[in-house]
Amino acid sequence: MLRNTKSRILGGAVAVIAAVAMVGCSSSNPTAPPSSGSVAPASGTVVVGSAQFPENEIIAQIYAQALTANGITVETKLSIGQRDVYLAALQDGSINLIPEYSGNLLQFYDPKTTATSSDEVVAALGDALPSGFEVLDPAKAEDKDSYNVTQKFSTENNVTSLADLAGLGIPLKVGGNPELGERPYGIPGLKDIYGVKDVTLVPISDSGGPLTVNALVDGTVDLADIYSTTPAITQNKFVTLADPKNMILAQNVVPLISSAAATDEVKAVLNKISANLTTAELLAMNELNQGDKKESPETIAKDWLEQKKLF
C-alpha cells in the first residue's frame, strides 16, 4: 500500500509537471495572428470586412449596402476575427474597407500614444497608420468603456459626470473587468484625474455583461464599466457619466480604407453615413440585434438606411 501510494503520488506529480511543461514549451505562440488567406479583389471593387461581433457587422452592412445603392461594386467578407487578424487582411489586400474604432486602432499602431479626445485621436491616426491606408470622417458614435450609475444614484447624489464623484465623500465601489485596477482609465484615473479618494474595484470578468449589470442594479456596486453601446444601459435606465477630462480614450466609429479604394465617390458615401451615426443609434441597433427581436445585421442596416433616407 505504502509503495503504491507513493508511486501514485509521484506518478501524478510527474504527469502534472510534464503536462504543464509541455504547454509551457510548446513553440506556437497563441497570440500570433493566423495567416489570412489572401485573394486580391478585382480592381474597382470595394471589399468590406468586419470584426467578429454584431455591432461591427451592422456598420459594415451599412457601408456595403450604401455603396451598392450608389452604383459601386461591393463584396463583403464579414466577421473576420479580432483586430490583429482583420488588419492583416486589410494589409494583404483581401479586404479594403472596414469599420474601426478610433482609439483602439490608434493604440494598435501606436501603443504609447497620449491622445485621448476624439479630435486628438483622429489627428494622431493620420500619422500612425501605415502608408496606403487612411481613415475617413469619424462618426459621433462611440463604442467605448463608460461609467454608469443607476437613475436613483444619479438623482439622489446629483451625479451626471465623473467630475461630480470627488465631491460625494462616500466610499465608491466600481464593478468591471479586473484590468480596471491597473489601466489609466480605471481606478488609477478616477483617483488621479478626477480626484476620487475612496474608490475600490469589484472585479467581475464579464466585460460589462449581465453579471456587471446585475451588480449595479442590486446595489453591489455604485458604478459599473459597461461599453457605451450596450442595450442594457437603456433597458435599465442607467445614467452614463460624462467624461469631461477625456480620461477614457475616444472610440469613434471610423471607416478605415486602403487609399487605392478611396475614390471621391466612395468617400462621399461613407462620410455621409458617419455624419448621421450617433452612439444612441448604434445602441438602438444593438438592441434590435441582441434584444427580443434578434434581427440580422443585414436587416438592421437596411432599415436604418431606409429610415435615414441618405441616398
Binding site: 479586473p178 469589484v202 470578468s205
Partner: peptide, 17 residues
C-alpha cells in the same frame, strides 16, 4: 470571474493585462 478571493484572482487579474 466574480469578486471573490482565492488563488484564481492571480490568473483572472493577470490575464487581461
Amino acid at each position: 470571474i466574480l469578486p471573490v478571493g482565492g488563488l484564481g484572482r492571480f490568473m483572472l487579474d493577470g490575464l487581461p493585462v
